[in-house]
């Protein structure tokens, strides 16, 4: 808690993992295809290895530490 209240960022970068997005957004993937978020918080892939692009599918956890974002 800070003097202004609780921290509640719109975007959270998870070390070694995805980027969390709060709220409604449209995310364009690497092929230029637009994807609408459809849950209160969405996890965007940062390691590039997810089979569910642009969303995280947990694959970063099986990568060697040096290949994690």
């Amino acid at each position: 808690m800070t003097e202004h209240g609780f921290e509640h960022p719109d975007v959270i970068i998870c070390p070694g993992g995805p980027l969390l997005l709060r709220g409604d957004h449209v995310v364009e993937d690497a092929d230029g295809v637009a994807h609408e978020t459809r849950r209160p918080v969405s996890a965007v892939c940062r390691c590039g290895k997810s089979a569910d692009q642009p969303w995280c599918d947990g694959t970063h956890k099986v990568l060697p530490a040096r290949d994690r974002p």
């Binding site: 959270i12 993992g17 995805p18 969390l20 849950r39 996890a43 969303w55 995280c56 599918d57 947990g58």
Partner: peptide
């Protein structure tokens, strides 16, 4: 659950 729990694990832990 592939997609939802990739979010939920981050929320639950962090």
């Amino acid at each position: 659950h592939v997609e939802a729990d990739a979010v939920h694990e981050q929320l639950a832990v962090r």
